[in-house]
Computed example of a mutant assay.
Amino acid sequence: MTRNGHGEKLSYYQLGRTAIFACQADQRFSYCCYIPEGYEENGTRRYPLAVLIHGSTRTVDSLRDQFIDFAEANQCVVLVPLFPCGIGEPGDTHNYKRILYRGIRYDLLVLAMIEEIGELYRLDAEKVLMHGFSGGGQFVHRFFYLHPERLLAVSIGAPGVVTLPDPDKPWWLGTGHLKSIFGRDLDLSEMRKVAVQMVIGGDDIETWDVTVAPSSSNWMEGINETGVTRVDRLRSLERAFLSLDIPVRFDVVPGVEHIGHLVHPPVKEFFASALARRQNL
């Protein structure tokens, strides 16, 4: 980096804790990154990519900063998309969690962001690490159904509502009619190649923000049948994965309620293990 804070090719705003940039594929959405200090603009090393999906509060800069230690220890670039509230409907907080909302494909937006930063930085991003907590946990397991070939590892953190890999249940209760909605079916052989973690706090047992009422925009008949608490629902998802021979690492963090950063330590360890296994192949 030169004395004025800029690199030779990249600006100050594109290094370290980057600014928040509009996604060129759709400028209603944006992202920020963390680029490790060891990144050399003129080097040859390619960097793995971790994609972190925010929850309903959209605190993307603090989420990014909470993984700086991981990024430095593993020389990994971090990407955090921002999907603002109220897109298409004032006050709405749920849209991105469903992947498809009023014609917007949030999964394809994430892939577009990966491609966009891949033009700036030397990334090894054909297969990425992905974690989401709460609303982000909803997003990432649905992304997993649609794009397992793009994932090295997926960490599903405490989703309030889960989609079971069940073709007899309609989307987003299950994966029924996936082909007609998204243009692709479940690829179980690819899903079995992805390292899967489910992670939750042991005291994440509140029900007031988990039970879906008929008045909610998330309501579907049967939406509450996977369990009363987030722990129950994540266990239901685990059983469904195991029934399809998709291995799952299930981490419960004792004494932790629904607080995302307190479950990050096992997520970082899981991601580091996935990167180490890839290097050893």
Rank of each mutant, 00 (worst) to 15 (best):
R3S: 15
V80Y: 01
L237Y: 10
V252T: 10
R28G: 04
R142L: 02
R233K: 15
T18Y: 09
H264T: 07
D65Y: 08
F139R: 02
T93K: 11
C32D: 11
G43T: 03
N280I: 12
L111G: 07
D65Q: 14
E225C: 06
A25L: 02
P247Y: 00
M113W: 00
C76T: 15
E40T: 11
E115D: 14
I68M: 06
V77L: 08
D232E: 14
M198W: 02
L129F: 08
R3F: 15
V256Y: 00
T93N: 11
D65P: 06
S215Y: 10
I246S: 06
I35E: 12
G43E: 05
V78S: 12
S217L: 08
Q138T: 15
V162Q: 05
E221H: 03
Q279N: 10
D124R: 02
E206R: 11
V267C: 06
L15G: 09
V210Y: 02
E149P: 06
N218T: 09
G5K: 03
M1I: 15
D209Q: 02
T59R: 10
A73Q: 15
L109W: 08
C32A: 07
S56A: 11
L123Y: 04
Q138E: 15
G137R: 07
R45M: 08
V80W: 01
R150G: 04
E37Q: 08
M113L: 02
D204N: 05
Y39D: 12
S273G: 11
R58E: 14
D107S: 05
R64T: 12
L151S: 10
A71R: 07
L146G: 02
G260P: 09
I87M: 13
G183K: 05
I181P: 04
T229I: 13
P265S: 00
H131Y: 15
I156V: 10
I117N: 01
Q66K: 02
R233D: 14
Y47T: 14
R277A: 09
L108K: 14
E221F: 01
G55Q: 01
G136L: 10
V128R: 01
L186Y: 03
E257Q: 13
S155L: 03
L63N: 08
I104R: 00
L120N: 09
D69E: 12
T18L: 09
A276D: 12
E37N: 08
L262V: 04
K179V: 12
D124L: 00
G135Y: 07
Q197G: 12
H264Y: 07
G43P: 02
M220L: 12
Y12S: 13
D232C: 06
E257D: 14
Y96L: 14
G132I: 12
G88I: 15
T229F: 05
V154D: 13
Q279V: 10
F67E: 11
A50C: 04
G160Y: 03
N4K: 05
A240C: 12
K97R: 10
L237A: 10
Y106G: 09
S216H: 10
L237E: 09
V51L: 01
K127V: 04
L173E: 12
G132W: 06
G183C: 08
F182Q: 08
Q138H: 14
E221C: 01
R150L: 02
T44F: 00
V210N: 07
L79N: 13
F250N: 00
R102Y: 03
P36T: 05
Y12H: 14
L178H: 02
T59W: 03
R150Y: 01
G5N: 11
R122Q: 05
E41R: 00
A240K: 03
V161I: 15
D61S: 14
A274Y: 00
R150A: 04
C23L: 14
T211I: 15
